[in-house]
Write a protein that binds this DNA or RNA. Structure first.
Lengths: 195, 195, 195, 195
DNA sequence: CATGAATGAGGGTTCATTCAT
DNA sequence: AATGAATGAACCCTCATTCAT
């Protein structure tokens, strides 16, 4: 009957929060933000409606927290050394990494792209998006520069767009878009790896 | 007084329908489908709520009609000769054409991509999407085949994805994505134009 | 090219009005007053919505006019001689008459009974209802009195109720309520015809 | 604070549901199904509109639940022993019983008869209506048969119709239809009680 | 006499959010 | 920490009615 320690409380809170996040993400991604009602999310999480407001200020806040957590995770994943420099091996594994993430966090990515079309929410996340995007562009531009590519910024923009497009196609129809078999061609066109 | 002639009525109907479609497209594209309420659309069009239902069966029907009209227009734009064959000149102008359309029908394209994340509506349009997509893939694959590219299907898929990605980036932030300056690089990488 | 005579105009008006009345009665009776919209009625009559308001002040007025016309017709049908006296033969034919009308004006009767449950309309017709009802009661009471029945008023009330009940059952399910085969029993119980 | 117990919730739900049912029945019966709006019902019950949908799926469901509950109650009232046999005493009390119910559940009966003229709803309840009706007809037919009446089925149909007619008249104008003073005459004509 | 485009009030319904327990 | 009853604003939609032609 000893009272729970502070740590235990915190763990309970965290795990409950994760429960809600997962339930919400599934519905947000598969039905869309608006059609996924708080009632449905609560039912999907196996808890009461009211409890959600114990952990999140509003439905929008719930979406926002899901997105920021995901964006932060992605930001660190994109630059493991945190040194901002991409070796040739890292470039190769970078591509694999992106598409591995795409598969493993399918729902998150669906949501990620969908959010771009919810201007209201999108605006709130803009700074994070920009930060992530510029970080990536910087790394790629540096990489292309050090490999003697003519217009490194443009090459980076194009490569970024290609990744978006592939992600987009894969997310919306995984069965019709054979991402694995395309990776080699991508490498040939955009990685400039010296044999 | 005699009533309006049939022709007069038809003209009224058509111009009013266009008015509603434009008002709706603007809001659908800029706010999203759900946040764009019928009230807002009506106000934006300068008419009463009720009148919308004189022209469209439901809000969903309104979106659907906008989308199908747009998709049909795109389908015919992508293959003007309707012969399904792309010459080298056509390939070059094809790329320009796409990005010209992107600029001129900015709102429509925003809506087009957003709709993919509205599962319910997306499903209703699936057959039209697939038709358009396979048509394009066929044309591109044939082009690559006739130019001796190794994996023509994959090349086509990749090129399609790149277009999506570029469109996506341009739509969401036209100022930060300098599409014109990228076109030449795209041509170099994906058009295989023999000089 | 001679202008229509006043009489011709009147005839056109009357026939058009009858057209509307029939279309309205069919829908009122079979769908109910509220579910039968002016649009449906117009379509059913093969005319425009607006025209209905050329002949009737409102939807309620349309119902009212249908009802009053019907009630007047019934009132005169119930007392052909207009002498208020029922002979034994008339009593017999009276019963047949009622149920014949029930069959021939099925829709009207359905509406008639339904209207009782639309308090707003019912109130407007109350005086006509009462008039018709008391007229009938008077005739029946006199009949029973002259045939030496103990409580002639009560007998009349009961007989009236029986007719309502039979009409009610027949209207709602003509196939399950064999009105013809019941008439003889009714005669035995309520007509006091001396053999 | 701990949340309410399950029992507390159940009690709240039941009493609130009854509150809504009563408020709805009053308006349905006195104004009709369509004119009785959800807004009015909520106001009459002293609650918000939205709450009604916490207890009933739709307006139609609300009506349906009221009706089915009433029909079930009536079905059991009509055959207390559930043996399907009517003694002479029971027949006498049966008549009193019906008209007592008519008085006590005035509103319910009004609704009951009104519903017959709401084709859409009527159809949904048809099976329950038929069940109740055939049950009653069977009991009456058996009774008449055992009393040597010539056409027991017809006699039962007629008696049923009389009850409907009396109920109908009483409901619509209790003051003008002196049901008590008619019961004896009904007994004389339809109960075949051997003195 | 006749049309149907147009209105606006009100309908049924949903849902994010609050709050007593 | 947890419940779900309760609210109220906003939603999509219908429809009797009006009116320019």
């Amino acid at each position: 009957m000893s009272p729970r320690t502070e740590k235990q409380f915190k763990e309970i809170r965290e795990s409950k929060k994760a429960l809600i996040v997962n339930a919400a993400m599934e519905l947000f991604a598969n039905e869309g933000y608006h059609p996924a009602s708080i009632s449905k999310i609560a039912k999907n999480a196996g808890i009461s409606k009211g409890l959600i407001y114990n952990y999140f200020e509003s439905k929008e806040d719930l979406l926002l927290q899901i997105m920021t957590a995901g964006l932060d995770e992605m930001a660190s994943a994109f630059d493991p050394n945190n040194d901002g420099v991409l070796s040739e091996e890292e470039m190769a594994s970078f591509i694999y990494g992106i598409f591995t993430m795409l598969k493993e966090k399918h729902e998150y990515w669906k949501l990620y792209y969908a959010v771009f079309f919810q201007p209201k929410v999108s605006k709130l996340l803009e700074s994070k998006f920009v930060e992530l995007y510029t970080k990536m562009m910087k790394i790629l531009t540096d990489y292309y520069q050090s490999h003697g590519v003519k217009n490194p910024e443009q090459e980076a923009l194009l490569f970024g767009a290609l990744i978006d497009g592939m992600a987009f196609n894969y997310i919306l129809n995984p069965k019709l878009f054979p991402i694995e078999s395309l990776i080699e061609t991508v490498k040939d066109k955009f990685c400039y790896i010296k044999k």
